[in-house]
């Protein structure tokens, strides 16, 4: 494998991280909550995507349905779980979120223990690049992520809703006294973040052709690491951390470093997930506030 192919592979994986991590950062920025249950919405999106595609035969319809269902589920989670405990110490919301995540995961087991797969998997096929085979679905994911996150950026920069949103993140009390309905902003926030996680869930289901109750686990644990790396609440930092981690994983799992007369291969000492978290721990020891501090 050439360096170029590894780089591309890393960027493609980074775009999936980005779709998940954007929602987490939005929630953290607004409420200072580590929204672990976000992972369950990723999985929920995957389930809806597969089931609706199988029922109707339309993948686009399934994608939209997954976004809406997960978005509404995210708003319900905000209303029923987070809103009543916002005044309590932060660990309360964190533990409640973990509890909800585990319970939702088990809830999917009620629906279908074995997981669901596409009858006719859409967007299959592969592409050759620099001697490496890339899955078409991953390339589509990359562009979908760029379009959605870019669109979100435009929305935040140009529209009244976007201005209200940014004002609420920066200074909630002041925003409220300027007549912004901050509760409404929070609902929109959860809807958009959760819908993006659902897109990630659907797109990943294309590459694996399987959605099971635990599908979202590893992606989401790493997304949590990413938003911490990015400085918690900094959108720019998060996006950079997403792609940096994707590329780092692609290189670290395959590259060996000669040390004296033995070859040290990181991929043989620890698996991919451990590499990601080792990176996180090392970075935090050097920069405890994350790579990028919130402006």
């Amino acid at each position: 494998m050439t360096e170029l192919a590894l780089l591309v592979q890393g960027l493609l994986d980074g775009s999936i991280y980005a779709l998940i991590a954007v929602g987490l950062t939005l929630v953290y920025g607004l409420l200072r909550i580590l929204h672990v249950a976000h992972a369950a919405l990723f999985t929920l999106g995957g389930y809806v995507g597969v089931v609706v595609t199988n029922e109707t035969g339309s993948f686009i319809l399934a994608l939209v349905a997954a976004m809406i269902v997960a978005g509404i589920a995210g708003m319900i989670i905000y209303r029923l779980v987070y809103q009543p405990i916002l005044h309590l110490p932060p660990y309360v919301a964190l533990i409640a979120s973990i509890g909800l995540f585990i319970a939702m995961q088990e809830g999917f087991r009620f629906y279908d223990e074995q997981g669901v797969s596409y009858v006719n998997p859409p967007v299959q096929g592969t592409l050759e690049l620099a001697g490496q085979t890339l899955q078409l679905a991953k390339i589509v994911t990359f562009f979908v992520a760029i379009i959605l996150i870019g669109g979100l950026g435009l929305l935040a920069a140009k529209t009244r809703t976007g201005v209200a949103w940014r004002a609420t993140v920066t200074m909630p009390a002041m925003a409220e006294s300027f007549g912004i309905n901050i509760i409404q902003v929070r609902y929109i926030n959860f809807f958009i973040g959760s819908a993006l996680a659902a897109v990630a869930g659907v797109m990943v289901s294309l590459t694996t052709n399987l959605v099971e109750p635990t599908s979202g686990d590893v992606w989401s644990y790493k997304a949590l690491a990413i938003i911490v790396l990015g400085g918690l609440g900094s959108m720019r930092g998060t996006l950079i951390a997403c792609f940096a981690l994707g590329v780092l994983e692609a290189f670290a799992t395959t590259t060996c470093v000669p040390l004296g007369n033995i070859q040290i291969c990181l991929g043989e000492i620890m698996n991919r997930d451990a590499i990601a978290f080792a990176f996180l721990v090392i970075v935090l020891m050097i920069r405890p506030q994350g790579l990028f501090v919130r402006a």
Partner: peptide, 8 residues
């Protein structure tokens, strides 16, 4: 929160 994720 940083410590929570590090310990995770």
């Amino acid at each position: 929160d940083f410590l929570a994720i590090t310990t995770m």
